[in-house]
Design a protein around this nucleic acid. Structure first.
Lengths: 328, 328
DNA sequence: CTGAAAGCGCTTACAG
DNA sequence: CTGAAAGCGCTTACAG
């Protein structure tokens, strides 16, 4: 049984006002408080062929990353007068129902590989407004992308470890398979090694999955295997937590025995001990910009095909810098 | 200009199949892949008078609290086959548009005072399915509530400080005005004082707003004013971060000079230094349960009018207990 | 089990 | 500026 109240319709308003419903429809913006009239969104959508809703597809709402992104998206969506419909997928495999799409939104924001490629292509083919975050589209697709300077960031991080702290055996923890952020970060890692004359050792690349538990497990394994290393680039900040745990458990001191650096600069990074050296990614701004580009598309305007956001090195203590050199 | 593709409708499917649209409608659940047919949600909603969507109204998506709640809500909503529409309000004052309501959802989940009381009453009067989280409804409203043992939790926390660590001048930082969680926590704080024969000092109650910055500011003020205290119950974990900062800046050691305890046990609490003693609230489960109760309402079934979730003391280091006594 | 038809509550050309 | 009317794409009694 479902809600079935007899609240007023546009016809009631028209009758009371002694005008036609067309007239009411035209002035509907000035909320008709008399009858507590709230226009049915469904009827509007059906008649106008627009939903006034933006959809967000995201894969992992668990970590510390999501609130930042959502904050930006929420704010910008609202100020543009749209509703926000959110769906979080566990993985990017085909679903029976399409939770978000052309049937219930005007456009979609898609975060990294949270939508299977076929669906992405289908939406693109029917010219459905789409903006990708942290993921470049397949060649034939001309979809705006908002992403960050992953490679630069990683390079800064690793170069800092090499130059300031003389580390040479640096572990890289990869993110989830196919995750573009991770691929670019690895590239930055490799280029930093190369430009400092350190040869790449595939034995130092392990899986961290941008996930605390997985990072913990991989770190333990590395330790068990007796692999030598003097630094860890954990891929992201969530994974750094797992690295900390494993190192502390093995009585390796951070940063003296092993320097650790993350990526993202989420809320907790400055508060863990030692404070985490990481890359600040303007995540909230990524969200805002994604919405802005989508609105352009919705308005039939041109959108920027690539927006690349700057990243910034945030030096704290986990790399080996001392607290005194560092801003509070 | 808006998206206006000519994708197939139910009529196309009916024609191709050589049956009536009524027949198609009946078997529509077996997704008609032939024409890539995706039923228009708006038309369905309009005709069936149900949206298949649950709305979530929340006030602060900034903190570390939201991801936990959302995770539970997301999971349960999806497994029940509903969509989730989210709106976050800055404050609970009247809005011109009603972002979420009977016009676009089948039922609403409302988190603490994120919806103005008039709107709450209006929805209740038209018998619209509603579940409140962390907020008891006005007397005349019979709306299911999911909340946690705030008072018990606070009492455990404060009693611990008094009994194990001999603290007697304990600051309490209030949450936002009218926030029920905060009111109950304050009550627990007072009862713990009382049962240990410590008289209540209103000078030790300050505003923390469940917010890092506000907590930081209040703590600084307390320090500037030269108020004496040997412990702080910060109201929640986010505020504890601000307290840490202010104390460290003033060179007061935690926990030796000042013990600090929080509430919620969010992700970062175990990782900050010193690790935060706090109350574990089953936030994800609050979200799940709220959805379950709402589904009952949607099905015309009886719902539990009050669900009170247990809280649990999590002892770490910031209260003065030593790491050795504590689980890793 | 199936089809014809009314109806959900709006918007929007179109005519006046 | 206003009204009559068609139409948005479905669902659901109702009749057969």
């Amino acid at each position: 049984m479902i809600h079935r109240n007899r609240s007023s319709t546009i016809a009631d308003v028209a009758r009371l006002a002694g005008v036609s419903i067309a007239t009411v429809s035209r002035v509907i913006k000035d909320a008709i408080s008399e009858l507590k009239f709230v226009p049915r969104a469904a009827a509007r959508t059906l008649a106008s062929r627009r939903t006034n809703t933006i959809g967000l597809i995201f894969s992992e709402i668990g970590g510390a990353f999501f609130p930042l992104l959502l904050k930006g998206i929420e704010a910008e969506t609202r100020s543009a007068g749209y509703e926000l419909l959110i769906h979080s997928t566990q993985a990017a495999h085909a679903q029976k129902r399409r939770p978000l799409g052309e049937h219930n939104t005007d456009g979609l924001l898609v975060f990294t590989s949270s939508l299977e490629i076929e669906e992405l292509c289908r939406l693109s083919q029917i010219n459905f407004p789409l903006v990708l975050m942290h993921q470049t589209p397949p060649d034939e697709m001309n979809t705006p992308v908002i992403t960050i300077e992953n490679k630069d960031g990683a390079e800064m991080l690793v170069s800092h470890l090499i130059e300031k702290h003389a580390r040479r055996r640096i572990v890289y923890m990869q993110g989830p398979e196919g995750h573009e952020d991770s691929q670019w970060r690895e590239r930055g890692y490799r280029e930093a090694l190369e430009s400092h004359g350190i040869s790449f050792d595939p034995g130092l690349v392990v899986s961290g999955e941008f996930d605390e538990e997985q990072a913990f497990a991989s770190m333990r394994q590395l330790l068990l295997d007796g692999i030598e290393f003097d630094a860890v680039f954990s891929g992201d900040d969530d994974a750094a937590i797992g690295v900390y745990r494993a190192l502390k458990m093995a009585n390796r001191s951070i940063p003296d025995d092993v320097a650790v650096v993350g990526f993202d600069d989420v809320q907790f990074s400055r508060y863990i001990s030692p404070a985490l050296t990481t890359i600040r990614a303007p995540i909230e701004e990524v969200g805002r910009e994604a919405v802005r580009q989508l609105i352009h598309l919705l308005n039939g305007e041109q959108a920027q095909s690539l927006t690349l956001m700057r990243t910034e090195l945030v030096i704290r203590e986990s790399c080996g810098c001392s607290p005194k050199e560092v801003n509070p």
